[in-house]
Computed example of a mutant assay.
Amino acid sequence: MSRSQNAARYGALAERHARERYGLDVDHSPWHDARDSSGDPWDVKACMATRDAPRFRLWKKQHTRLARAGGGYVFIEYRPVGVGIRVLRTRTVRARSLRLRFYGAGQHPKGAQIKLPPYRIFG
């Protein structure tokens, strides 16, 4: 299985964990993955703890939209185990509470981004 196929599978498992843990409903759109019982949008961001430089990647346009809609992020740090994942830490954070400095991503179609290491989220 390719690296991108693994990443997609792990991401889907992280989303399922977030939905179960926080009572979210699937609602995929280009800028979020789920909604809570109040209708607020949430995007799940996952990173693999075993990578050399684990990080959560956030995009400025998505972040601005989440903040305006009163939504947030579910951050999940995990380890791959067999064909699944073992969740190490999770945390929800409202987008408007994050103070971020985005930077250019070259010619990336999603535009400006920031890569946050887990310690910035989990302390």
Rank of each mutant, 00 (worst) to 15 (best):
V83H: 12
I85L: 08
L24T: 09
T92P: 06
A7P: 07
G39T: 05
G71D: 12
R91E: 07
G84P: 06
R101H: 05
E20A: 14
A105T: 03
D36V: 05
D36M: 11
T64A: 15
S29E: 15
V81I: 15
S2A: 08
Q5S: 11
V81P: 05
R99D: 03
N6G: 05
Y119F: 08
R99Y: 04
V93G: 03
F102C: 01
S97C: 04
A18V: 04
F56T: 04
A67I: 11
R91L: 06
L24P: 02
K115G: 00
A34K: 04
Y103W: 08
A46H: 08
R79T: 00
A18C: 06
A95V: 06
I85H: 07
T92Y: 02
E15V: 07
R16S: 10
L100M: 01
E15T: 10
E20C: 08
G71Y: 12
Y10E: 13
W59D: 11
K45A: 03
A14M: 09
H17W: 15
H108T: 00
C47M: 07
T64V: 15
G71S: 12
A69R: 14
Y10W: 14
S38W: 12
K45N: 05
Q113N: 05
L66F: 11
A14W: 08
W31H: 11
A105F: 03
D25G: 10
T64E: 15
R55N: 12
I85T: 00
S97P: 05
